[in-house]
Amino acid sequence: MTGPSFALLATDGVARRGRLATAHGTVETPAFMPVGTAATVKALTPAMVAATGAQMVLANTYHLMLRPSAERIARLGGLHRFMGWDGPILTDSGGFQVMSLASLRTINETGVQFRSHVDGARYELTPERAMEIQYLLDADVTMVLDECVAHPAEPDAVAEAMRRSLRWAARCREAFRARPGYHLFGIVQGGIDPALRAESAAGLRAIGFDGYAVGGLAVGVGQAAMFDVLDVTAPLLPAAQPRYLMGVGKPDDLVGAVARGIDLFDCVIPTRSGRTGQAFSREGALNLRNACHAEDPRPLDESIPCPASRDFSRAYLHHLVRTNEILGAMLLSWHNVAYYQQLMADMRAAIEAGRFDAFCDDFNRRRSGDDQ
C-alpha cells in the first residue's frame, strides 16, 4: 500500500468532507464520478465534462479489455491520453458486467471464464489479470475483482460469492503494483444481510486497502434496504480512508448516502436520463417530452454554471427531444452531469459549515416530484 492519500477535513454528524490525492490530481469529497464506461462519457467531450466541475471519471475494465484492449491503450500512452482526460480515473474491475453475462460465463475459484458479448471470443478474467489490465490502463484507483450477485438471491449464494470475493481480494492485493498516487480499493459484498456485510468488511480490513467500496446495491436493492445496509456497513470501514458506493444513484440516493458517511459515487443515471429526455433539477426530475414544457421560456437552472443549464429554454429542449435531435441528448446529459456536480459541491459546503441537516431539509422540501 502507498502512504496516506485521504485527508478527512470536516465532519457534520456522520457526513464527511475529505480530499483524495491521486497521481493525476486531487478529488474533493463527497464527489460524483461521471461514468465513461468505454473511455467516453456518453454524448460529452472531456472538456464538457471538466466544465461541469467533475474531478474524476470512471471507466470499465471489462469493456476496455474487449475493445480496444488494455494492451493497445497502454501502447498509445495510457487511458488518460487515449480519452483526452487528464484528471483522475477510477476503473471498475468488471465484476458487475460479468454478473450480467450469466448465460455466457462460468465462475470458479480461479476467476471468470466468459464469452465476449461482442464477438463470442473466449476470455478469462482472474484477480491477477484484472490488476494487470488496470495497471496497463494507468488507473488512479483500481478496484478488486469481485463476484456481484443480483438481488434477490438465495442466502447461500450471496455468502458463497462474498467469501470468494474476499479470497479474490487477497489475490488482488498481492498482484497490485503499488506506486505513489495509485490506489487499490476493496469491495464489501454480502447482499442485504448485516452479518455477511460485517464479515466482508472485517475480511477486507484485515487484508488492508487504500479505500473501501460498498458493492452489490445497484442490482435491484431498493433505497430503504440500501440505506439499511449503509447504516450497518459504513461504521465498520476505516474512518481515515475513502468510502465509495458503487453504481448509485439518483440525487436523493446521493444525499442519503452522504448522510451515512459515503465519500464517492458513480452512476450512469445522469447521462442515460439525458439521452431519454429527463433532466434533474432542484425541484425534482423533469420529463422534457411533456407538453407542459412546449412554451416554457425558462432555462433548466440558471444558477448552475453550465451553458446547457442556463442558456437554453425548456421549450427549445422540449423541441429537441420531441424531434430526436442529437443536440437534445447532448445538452440534457451536460446539464445533468453539471447538476450532480453542483449537488456535490453544495453538500461539501454544507458539511464544512456544519449545516448539513439544514441542507437535507431544504433538499427534500424543494423536490416537488418527478416527471413534470
Rank of each mutant, 00 (worst) to 15 (best):
I207N: 05
D12K: 08
E325F: 14
P88A: 08
R171I: 07
S100V: 07
I207T: 15
A59C: 15
V118Q: 08
A15M: 02
G18T: 08
T37C: 10
A74Y: 06
N336E: 12
G120V: 06
D228I: 02
R173I: 01
A294L: 02
Q134N: 06
R173M: 01
G208A: 04
T52S: 14
R67M: 10
D357G: 03
A70R: 00
C360F: 14
R355W: 14
N108D: 15
R298Q: 00
F363S: 07
G191C: 04
A178N: 02
A10W: 03
V118H: 07
A294R: 06
L245N: 01
L331S: 14
P127Y: 07
R310Q: 05
E352V: 13
C267E: 04
Y244G: 00
I107N: 06
H151P: 10
L237D: 07
V255P: 12
H63I: 02
M99E: 13
A329S: 12
S69Q: 09
L64W: 03
S309A: 13
T61A: 04
L9E: 05
M48W: 05
V337D: 04
G222Y: 04
E109G: 13
V98G: 06
P235K: 10
G284W: 13
I269N: 10
A130H: 03
F32C: 04
H319D: 11
F227R: 02
L145Y: 14
L264T: 12
M162F: 13
G53S: 05
V141H: 07
R260K: 11
A169L: 09
I73E: 06
R355Q: 15
I326S: 01
R19W: 03
E124G: 09
A259H: 01
L137P: 03
G87Y: 07
H63P: 01
F185V: 00
A291I: 11
L320W: 07
Y182F: 14
Q223W: 13
D210N: 14
M99Y: 14
L237A: 12
M226N: 12
A54I: 10
A206S: 09
Q372R: 10
A225Y: 07
T26W: 05
Q223V: 14
G181E: 00
A150G: 12
N108F: 02
H183A: 11
L64N: 01
H319G: 01
R366L: 06
P299D: 01
P4H: 09
R81V: 04
Q55M: 08
I351A: 07
R17Q: 05
G277Y: 11
T323Q: 11
T26Q: 09
Q113M: 04
D370S: 07
P270Q: 09
A202T: 06
E128P: 00
V158G: 00
V49H: 02
A345V: 15
C360R: 15
I192C: 09
V232P: 09
M131A: 12
T323D: 09
D231W: 00
L8M: 01
P242A: 08
A157C: 04
R72E: 07
E283N: 01
L300K: 06
Q189E: 13
A74L: 03
L9P: 02
T26D: 14
A350Y: 08
